[in-house]
Design a binder for these strands. Structure first.
Lengths: 340, 340
DNA sequence: ATAAAAAATGTTATCGATAACATCAAATTA
DNA sequence: TAATTTGATGTTATCGATAACATTTTTTAT
């Protein structure tokens, strides 16, 4: 590979002069600047970012860790983060943890050893605490997205999840439903806990009592094995007339399972969920959901992150917490109960 | 940040000894190995990948460039690439070019200056040629995915696109359709060209004549402005009874536009497309498509890439070309014509 | 014209790690 | 036991770039 020394030799100057031309620092005569530029072109010079970062002690490289690259919520979020990063002159790379704290840890190691300037993390769950402590210990700024991790203070962008859960339940009760089930993410994820809370509060406000049998806690990620959903559906007695799903993946799994049993949605059973199904849901606007501003999660989170990075030397600001609203989008997957 | 020198000092050995412990090279007594390990733990040592890559001249870092991170075809592909990379001990980072050759160029610059060991590229189009030449010139191995670029020989993983287009047209004709339109990607993308070819061949084989007015070439990416689709729909006379869409995004756009006009799919007009709509399409299996093995694109491409990287010193092998089959999945978006 | 200031360029050390070679002590062999 | 091998560790140079300081050249001021 061509280095600044090759250029320096070819142009008859010192490496430092080449470095100055590249970075537009110091004083350089127009003549040598032109000559150096020309040689750089001729030799197809590409700067070595690693060597550069090694001495500068900063990489202008940021990372975004998401938990499911096939989930439109996260990919939309990624677009927002990307746009904000580009605007500020940072490069952004993505990592996909697959809802798996182990994989996430590997990415954190990569991030630490790549000496990234900062990270945007949608943590896999409470078990992420140890990696986040690792980032903190090594002084790598990070902003949490969508989920909090108990025991770790930081900047964070959240959705108004509890309120979202309430709205969904309210919507269902307004349609006459009284036996409303919840299929939720694992309790090791903060957003799942809030959804359960919101669900319970809304039940109470609607004078419905909370019944444990109507709640299933399942992993957020798509799996081939739907047997726990199957047995849960069998177990509820009397069966619910509506189901709230804790995220888009679970909504899909539930509906698939129901279809497999010949149960029609919403005719036989209503289903509502969290997060849109991506642009493709527009083909046939079906699922009634709480829509979160996915793009904003990424955009605002990235802005906060970069502010943290650049204010590093000044005295530390208090942690910031952005809560984005949750909007109910009524479509067709929840129906009025006939006899209510 | 803690370096091997800090560890060396603390453990009372030389930096080289620490390096040996880290890499398990050379001979080290159990006693010092244990001591060094202990100090590394205590100080939370994390190796600096940049310094390491600088001397080793390899980074064990690979990149995947895709053109649309919100498209399930590419995210599924990404999962495959990720799995294959991990299996071989490489780290994988993602970049999103947004179907934009300029953004793609920025990523290529990043890749070059990061001294990545190789790249998997789904090129934005024929205009990608110059960046690919840049990669080639700098001796960075790459494998193309899904699209070829004229003028650039390389390893490549393709779908059997032309055959796919034929199957779609055959399916429609078997349902009685004779006026079949095509909304396709821009001709600057190789896969779009093949789809057009396949479409024309299939028409001929079915004794239908090719009529230019039934073909629209549009950008693959999602846009807010649907006016060209609108005017195209208006212009066709007599209107088609079926539309083939060149990819999933276009299929969605067309169906949205049709819905906006009160035209029902498939009752009033049939629509078929390329590529699945992700896991979410399973809620309501609607769109009849040619399904490509997205995961395999990524997995096999990554395997080829790594083989290239690791065989680098031995004599060069001829370029390889993998063509993955295209499977027709009949769902509900194309209907039998009543009067045929 | 000459000192002083400013501009242009060069030298050396450094970032954190590893390769290649050097050294020293312990173990083995003759 | 002296000679030799082997094991364990240390030293130095290097990867490609930049900061800090040093030097040379040019310009400006007196």
């Amino acid at each position: 590979m061509v280095t600044i020394y090759d250029i320096a030799a070819q142009a008859g100057v010192s490496a430092m002069t080449v470095s100055r031309v590249i970075n537009n620092t110091g004083k350089i005569s127009d003549k040598t600047r032109a000559k150096v530029r020309r040689v750089m072109e001729e030799l197809n010079y590409v700067p070595n970012h690693m060597a550069r970062s090694l001495v500068l002690q900063q990489s202008k490289l940021l990372f975004l860790l998401i938990t499911d690259i096939t989930n439109p919520f996260y990919t939309t979020l990624a677009r927002g983060a990307e746009d904000a990063a580009k605007k500020q002159g940072y490069r952004l790379l993505f990592g996909n943890s697959d809802e798996n704290a182990e994989k996430e840890k590997d990415y954190v190691d990569t991030i630490l050893s790549t000496r990234a300037d900062g990270v945007l993390v949608a943590p896999a769950g409470d078990a992420s605490l140890s990696h986040l402590e690792s980032l903190r210990r090594h002084n790598v700024p990070f902003v949490l997205l969508d989920r909090e991790v108990p025991g770790m203070d930081s900047d964070v962008v959240l959705g108004d999840t509890k309120e979202g859960a309430r709205k969904l339940v309210d919507h269902l009760t307004s349609l006459g439903h009284r036996r409303i089930a919840l299929i939720n993410g694992l309790p090791a994820i903060s957003s799942a806990r809030l959804r359960l809370e919101g669900y319970r509060e809304a039940l109470k406000l609607n004078d419905l009592h909370y019944d444990e049998q109507y709640v299933l806690e399942s992993a957020f990620e798509p799996k081939s094995d739907l047997s726990d959903i199957e047995s849960w559906l069998d177990s509820m007695d009397p069966p619910p007339t509506a189901i709230v799903a804790g995220n888009n993946v679970l909504a899909v799994e539930v509906i698939r399972t129901l279809h497999g049993r010949g149960i029609r949605v919403p005719d036989d059973l209503s289903v509502v969920g969290f997060d849109d199904l991506g642009p493709y849901s527009e083909i046939d606007p079906f699922l009634t959901v709480i829509s979160q501003q996915a793009y904003q999660f990424g955009y605002l989170g990235m802005q906060m992150l970069i502010e943290r990075i650049e204010e590093r030397d000044s005295l530390p600001q208090p942690w910031r917490r952005i809560v984005l609203p949750a909007e109910l989008i009524v479509r067709r997957s929840a129906a009025q109960l006939p006899f209510s």
